[in-house]
Design a protein around this nucleic acid. Structure first.
Lengths: 368, 368
DNA sequence: TTTTAGCACTCTTTTTGTTAGATTGCTAAA
DNA sequence: TTTAGCAATCTAACAAAAAGAGTGCTAAAA
């Protein structure tokens, strides 16, 4: 099955491309007669038939049943996107609309991702998703511990690069004072700024315990415990921050006949609702990778998502990966349009940095 | 059509009840023969037939077509839940499981609601939803303003009753100092504690402006603007806090034949995805109401949700409404089970207050 | 008077059969 | 090497028939 691309003649490529595009357009198996008449292939249906038979032997096409036309196999789609897809030419109208939709009152990372997802889903008419950056790449640029009462305080964390603010409520089985919490603030900022989840090791923690002890003049055990629960909270927050996934336009799935099969739809919606599977699938992708990734059908994807394609790209802002955006739909997807939309979106977001630099009077929410 | 309940003979009630329950179980129209054999009604099918014909005349039953059995009309369901439903006797096993699932490491309101929704969906096998309390009933017990840089600061708000913490990032077109932001903190806490969204009026705002001016010794215009954007953020946060709605188990919809109709399913999923419609529908319910509300079919519900039932109940913790929980499913719903589950859940949550009172070592996240 | 058995009638669902249409693969001719 | 033509295969669509379910009504039984 592992055949060189060079094995395909130009005519085979032409025919394969025509079949994939016709199938994307119509959603039905395409036959030799249709190809001869509608696609501009200068051969008779018999010739096309022969080529199709060979393409099927090679694994690029499939035949649902004897008297049906051919549909592309996963391998066929893969070949199509890898070599044949002609870049979709986003019309100027669409591009400017996209820019308008995106630039609307945004600055905070969650907002950008949310909006990008909405725009992507609206323009492509497929289900879109967004992901936060991986936990390992998240660092904080500021910590703040706020005393609530003798048995609880709040940690506020501001993530670097993006203005995302997270808070966490910590309850304690022992008593603390406002002074101790304030000292905790100082220690956190002194020791943890810029550290990622992997950088926070025992020696860092030990050091923090010692410093808190010195600063607060409280007993060693109390300080150790306070640092311990605090670190645990920070750890959990960083993890969560790195695995948020959001969907937009789930209902659009229903517009495509491939999900009219309720079993498939059921599985797809479960996958979307549970999220973990998709997060795991996407976690294999290098975060600094600038390429648009395409997973067709069963290609190392979540097993449940056979027959579906995920197109996925990391988003950068000021050179830093702030997350990723993806589109999910049937294998029979308008690849050129989706690819163009995703590329353009990521470009526009990159360009947003200029807007962000300007101070402005909009208040932006930080959490939701 | 507006007939007294007293008009129904006991036998009619018996038969109506049997029909509703059989239809809930089977999902199909039920006929006289089935009732005679399976339900324990001591009459012949002919007698049952006569009664059924009369129940149909009275509006309690419907006949999809001549040779089909009867299905309950909305009015039939309504009568069933109002008078006939025998309280589902949650087995001890189920009850204890429920308690176990609920009590797991919870204290923060979001967690409680999220968990309750999951449990409700899992036990009933329908789609569950949760809502936050209405904006008008939300007050804050603490404000904290944290200086970030000359052009931005963060407001932290802690909602009363529940430990829900919200933060908001505010960007400014003019410069501020740490001292000014600290003064802002003081002013906020002095003036806004315990005030709901409706209580914050012009005179409160004017007073805050004056106090901030005195405290910070900054120029009047700057103080006025700072108060203004801050109030705007607080206002938005309170509003958001009061209209959060979350769903769990959407995929379960697909298990019921009434949603096999893709059109209906499509509408339902859109409704769920857009949320506003449901929020609006539920907003009509008195928040202090302790009753379990049942909306069957077209009864003053979102128009899109014809053929579906929403069961809905406010949740209280320490006597205060902390939100609400609901179940959505087909009209043909296992009412007794759903009602029992919801009632039991709300009771268990009420009882959680005891657990909450104890200090404990768990840290609980506050935002997500 | 109330209940029930029986039966004709209606409508749906399932089955079966038939036909028309689509598409292929193969063969033989161009 | 390409193409025309044709038999073979399969599906989709339609129609007709049969089976099944349930009712309403009538007349007999309790």
């Amino acid at each position: 099955m592992a055949l060189d691309i060079s094995e395909l003649s130009d005519r085979k490529k032409l025919i394969l491309k025509a079949i994939v595009e016709a199938h994307i357009k119509l959603g039905e198996p395409v036959g030799s007669k249709y190809l001869m008449q509608e696609a501009n292939i200068g051969y008779s249906s018999a010739t096309i038939r022969n080529e199709m038979a060979e393409l099927e032997d090679l694994g690029y096409l499939e035949q649902p049943h004897t008297s049906a036309g051919r549909i592309p196999s996963e391998m066929g789609y893969r070949f199509y996107v890898d070599t044949l897809v002609t870049q979709y030419d986003a019309t100027t109208r669409e591009a400017s609309e996209l820019k308008k939709m995106l630039s609307f009152k945004m600055s905070e990372i969650d907002k950008i991702l949310e909006n990008a997802t909405k725009v992507a889903s609206a323009i492509t008419n497929y289900t879109a998703l967004s992901l936060r950056p991986r936990p390992s790449s998240i660092t904080m640029k500021r910590y703040e511990a706020v005393y609530i009462d003798a048995h609880s305080y709040i940690i506020i964390m501001i993530a670097s690069g993006v203005d995302s603010v997270k808070t966490r409520n910590v309850k304690l089985p022992y008593e603390v004072t406002p002074e101790l919490i304030s000292a905790l603030s100082t220690v956190l900022n002194k020791n943890l700024l810029g550290l990622s989840i992997n950088d926070i090791n025992i020696s860092v923690i030990m050091n923090m315990e010692r410093e808190l002890e010195e600063q607060s003049a409280k007993e060693q055990k109390l300080c150790a415990e306070l640092i311990s629960v605090t670190i645990k909270s920070i750890y959990e927050t960083m993890n969560e921050l790195g695995s948020e996934i959001k969907f937009e336009g789930v209902n659009r799935l229903l517009e495509y006949p491939e999900y009219k099969n309720l079993d498939k739809l059921q599985k797809m919606i479960s996958t979307i609702e549970n999220k973990e599977d998709i997060i795991r699938a996407v976690s294999t992708i290098d975060q600094s990778d600038d390429e648009t990734k395409i997973f067709i059908g069963s290609e190392n994807m979540v097993k449940i998502m056979d027959d579906s394609t995920l197109i996925y790209k990391n988003l950068k802002l000021n050179g830093k990966t702030i997350g990723a955006i993806g589109i999910i739909g049937p294998c029979r997807m308008d690849y050129s349009k989706v690819l163009a939309t995703i590329d353009q979106l990521s470009e526009e977001i990159n360009r947003l940095s200029d807007i962000r630099a300007l101070p402005n009077a909009n208040n932006e929410e930080s959490d939701k």
